[in-house]
Write a protein that binds this DNA or RNA. Structure first.
Lengths: 254, 254
DNA sequence: CGTCGAGTTGAGACGTCTCAAAACCTGTGG
DNA sequence: CCACAGGTTTTGAGACGTCTCAACTCGACG
């Protein structure tokens, strides 16, 4: 399962030969501390790839042949257990690195990355990592910071799952998504990519049924407006209150 | 809340002036790729500190003045939420780094570290990190790998909490602890530091009551032998089976 | 127009939590 | 050396949140 060639032939991601727009990426955390020339040198080794909606960038367990930076679109990282259960690890937003298995010493991708939107990614061959790091040590330092932050976020998720009930967890998840990928509308904030109840269930450790019930409830109260793979937060502030609500104090019962 | 001085005055950790035994640490992942002289130089900046049982190495939210390497003993890292809920992030075993907040760009410790055993730690001042990394880039690369691994482990924990029920999660937790800190006895494997039902509950996202009930059940079946802050796995293999058991297939009902 | 994925909703089962009380163990101070 | 104090563990009983199972609706797309 190499990145290029056969694997990408079927669903259709394709290389784009245009040179990469440096102004788009220069400010990213990954490249902090690099000069303009350094950046050019780093980017020279990357290819830009179009990934159509619902196509996989890489699959869990496959050989970690590349690491990536998302330029445009949205990518969902999921893990599947031997028993077939699946969870959503995170949603990748533009500017994020992902699939950094080579950097953390993994031979194989620990998750599957799927474009949920038509997306554009930069891809470096894994072999480039040690070379680039040797030449530009701040790449390692920057990536360390990023991975450290993700570790903190994942701990936060563990805490949520340990101490909060489903409604609070869903509220948190939606607020996080709205912050990362919210599109401001006049009647609220829309999560700017297709997302199903199932996806939310896999982010919060519950079932799509429970998610559906809770969102239906919120819709009744006018907190959200949701449809097929679409969610708009109409009252973000009230959802924040829901999220912070501790197990004891329940709301008015309609 | 600085590391030295007043903070450590009360419970009694004390500096040990003996030079650090290099043979003990030379093989650790953190130091991979360093020459003997490099190692000497790195160790020169560290102090060795004795931390008595139940004393804190650092507190969540405190200024991240140092980062650490555990030489001897065991340290529990915990996080407390604003509402007072607490979870166990992990148990640190000898050879592990911890409190690496400076490396991942955090100004304050995201968790509290408490010695559960009389322990000995190496401490470097935070200010040393950028200097050491500049001089020995493999430190950053090695730490990146370590943090990456921890991220994987934490994801595994999220998956467990999403897909398994309490009994399986406890089984997994105990097996992990036994692997990391198991002392082999003739009648089983003992977890080699004091650990309460409460601790296990905070590792697995449940209550001490449920942990107690389940361990009592296991004790009936002869799988474990447990007492006050003590657990011996008598039948590790059978516990592995329990851990792998999916939600559907329940055991024989006595 | 039929099919299929996404969402909704009800009813009941079940695992775990909560509340409560008691027994137990261990280190400490009288 | 004993008794007490405080943390740990056990166990019961009932409440409750969420899952499971099941059926149905809706809308998009070929």
């Amino acid at each position: 399962m190499l990145l290029s060639g056969a694997h990408f032939a079927a669903p259709g991601p394709e290389k784009i030969m245009a040179s990469i727009d440096r102004s788009l990426v220069a400010h990213l955390p990954l490249f902090a501390g690099l000069s303009n020339e350094d950046l050019t040198e780093v980017l020279r080794e990357a290819r830009s790839i179009r990934v159509p909606r619902n196509a996989a960038v890489f699959e869990q367990g496959a050989d970690a042949s590349s690491f990536f930076l998302l330029l445009h679109g949205h990518v969902r990282a999921t893990k599947t257990t031997p028993t077939g259960d699946q969870i959503v690890v995170r949603y990748v937003v533009p500017g994020d690195t992902f699939g950094v298995a080579p950097a953390i010493g993994l031979q194989h991708y620990p998750a599957t990355a799927t474009a949920v939107d038509d997306s554009i990614v930069l891809a470096w061959p894994s072999a480039a990592w040690p070379r680039l790091v040797a030449r530009f040590p701040s790449l390692a330092a920057n990536t360390l910071q990023t991975v450290g932050q993700r570790l903190q976020e994942t701990h936060a998720r563990v805490i949520e799952m340990s101490t909060q009930q489903v409604e609070q967890r869903i509220a948190h998840a939606l607020l996080r998504l709205a912050n990362q990928a919210g599109r401001k509308l006049d009647h609220g904030v829309q999560i700017d990519f297709p997302i199903s109840r199932q996806d939310i269930a896999q982010m919060t450790g519950t079932t799509l049924h429970t998610v559906s019930r809770i969102l239906s409830g919120w819709e009744q109260l006018g907190l959200v407006e949701s449809g097929r793979q679409k969610i708009v937060l109409r009252e973000p502030h009230k959802i924040v209150l829901l999220a912070e609500q501790s197990a004891g104090d329940s709301a008015s019962r309609s």
